[in-house]
Nucleic acid binder design. Structure first.
Lengths: 347, 347
DNA sequence: CTGAAAGCGCTAACAC
DNA sequence: GTGTTAGCGCTTTCAG
């Protein structure tokens, strides 16, 4: 049927030229037909579609990307892919990107500044049409991200943002979440409320601390520096901090932890000391990790709409890419307080 | 310093030709120098590197990819990105791919056959150098995957594999895991052991069921079809199945669930009926989800080395891509039995 | 409605 | 050691 096919190895991918030759027409016609350009007659379009199908033709996007100076790809970099929050954001990004015909390339910084810089440069080389990023805990210089502003490549920060770079940002209302859940502890009758704070170079954790302080202030409770521990919020950090808190001459009777992980390890430590939760000690976390609902006692926490955040991030970046939207906004998604057993002193 | 830079908008990306013109040499020399080709003298190489740096040059991989007929990209498609197991596999893939200089593009099928097909075609159009995939629950036809074999594009299945396609595969030892944990229930003195099975079109769940049956057989326990429920393994399915089991005239006294999610919801249902776990009723899951360790009682389960699986998948595919490895292997990673409270009748 | 031709940015065989 | 040249496969003016 296609004589010169005989010469071809099966691995050779057909191109528009192969189709053109087959039909004795030009490659440009094929190209236009394949894009449903109305200038091409119905008949030729159908003929071309048929041959393309039978030859197993797949457009080579490397070629069209080069020609169009557009990769149809959006990059996303997160500290760690297999953290529920980040995985959910990625899931949201993928969903809307795929619908819009974009690819999503992914990379993880492992919270290391060097890896983040290296990844970002690689994304730049790959000419991503836009980048969605939550910066690494360790990152303190931002030249690698400022390039995007200089080159006018769409950039969206989510969750962990860089205040000094003017671009689109999506965060949850960390301050309000922290404020409300601290207020909740106070309402439950807890008197000395400690706080497990995260790295203070990240606004995320700054805001959670501020919310905590504000709630104390609003209720006329003096801020006590000895009741605040700052660490990296790992399981181990949580246990160590709990040990510190419970060793104080006048220990707290409740703890607001900046994530659920530390809330959990602190809770286990406190419980193992024979202290009843929530009767004698209240504990709350942040992030609404899946486990916080199913542990015993279940942990009160602040839910962040991760999947929605991913969707919004993708929408923002697509707006920048396709509609050349120039104005930047900062989306503050509402956080939701989820009350469970760990802080339910008053039923 | 670079006079014609004045004419350039900031958005124009410099190319090797710009560098060449600047230094009054040819583009090929620049290209070679940038690749550290030894044929270029030390001096010119340094000059070029310097100018490239000051001009903010970034190689355009769309162009080199086209020229080299290689996208330096590996695709990965999973049912759902924000499931811990899959996120961990992705994380493993990303790690070794990045080190090898490859990009990872990601997509999720949502367990829908149509979306999977559409994704795979898009990956094909994007000329991924290889594809790593765990198929959707719903997928029953495999033409979209057979293309890879035909076109000789490296393909690796993990976890949910397609037996009829000959290629690299990575699975965990589902049979052995199921066998051992059922045996464990028997050893703990449970007499009537039920099984919550997953969709039987997936070998993964077939093997888990087989392991269960084999353990019963080995111990001279007759297989009872009324003690096996097959469903989609959601939280709701688990609860419904538990309700069914406990409503039987002669209900089981232990349950081997094909995942931790159903183990959890079944456990909650049983516990709420006032039945003590593990004293009166034993329950075990599969997958070692993060929550299974921290719920009360903690759930005995089978750990799958997800991150390792991702690393291995990436290694396999890179071997195919770079060393033109032709032979296919099926890697069976060992599963690990993790004993916790939910099945600890005998201390 | 269709074709010819140029070029996206890079690489590599071939010259010298 | 360096330059010339010819594409990779596609899109898109411009011409007819």
């Amino acid at each position: 049927m296609f004589p010169h096919c005989l010469k071809m190895h099966k691995k050779i991918e057909p191109t528009i030229h192969d189709i053109a030759r087959e039909l004795k027409i030009s490659a440009s016609t094929v190209s236009r037909a394949l894009q449903n350009n109305p200038r091409i007659s119905q008949k030729t379009r159908e003929k071309i579609a048929l041959i393309a199908e039978t030859m197993g033709y797949r457009p080579n996007s490397m070629a069209s990307n080069l020609r169009n100076k557009k990769s149809n790809t959006i990059g996303i970099v997160v500290p760690l892919i297999n953290r529920y929050f980040f995985a959910s954001v990625i899931s949201g990004v993928e969903e809307v990107a795929f619908k819009a015909g974009y690819n999503v390339v992914i990379s993880q910084s492992n919270d290391l500044a060097d890896k983040e810089i290296s990844i970002v440069h690689s994304m730049l080389a790959n000419r991503v049409d836009g980048l969605i990023i939550s910066i690494a805990m360790q990152t303190t210089t931002f030249d690698h991200l400022k390039i995007f502003r200089k080159k006018n490549i769409p950039l969206v920060f989510f969750d962990r943002v860089v205040p000094e770079i003017e671009t689109n940002k999506i965060v949850v209302d960390d301050f309000m979440g922290a404020f409300r859940i601290t207020q909740h502890l106070i309402d439950q009758g807890y008197q000395r409320i400690g706080h497990m704070a995260g790295p203070q170079n990240l606004t995320t954790y700054q805001d959670r601390k501020k919310g905590y302080m504000e709630a104390l202030a609003k209720n006329g409770v003096a801020y006590d520096d000895s009741l605040v521990v700052t660490n990296s919020l790992t399981l181990e950090d949580g246990e160590k901090a709990a040990q510190y808190f419970m060793g104080l001459p006048d220990p707290p009777d409740a703890l607001f932890c900046s994530n659920d992980t530390t809330a959990l390890s602190a809770m286990i430590y406190v419980r193992d000391k024979g202290i009843r939760i929530p009767e004698d000690f209240g504990i709350v976390g942040f992030s609404n990790e899946p486990f916080s609902r199913v542990v015993t006692p279940s942990i009160s926490t602040i839910a962040q709409p991760a999947f929605l955040m991913g969707q919004k991030a993708a929408e923002l970046i697509l707006n920048q890419i396709e509609h050349k939207e120039k104005t930047f906004k900062t989306l503050v998604l509402p956080s939701e307080m989820i009350l469970r057993e760990s802080s339910a002193r008053r039923k």
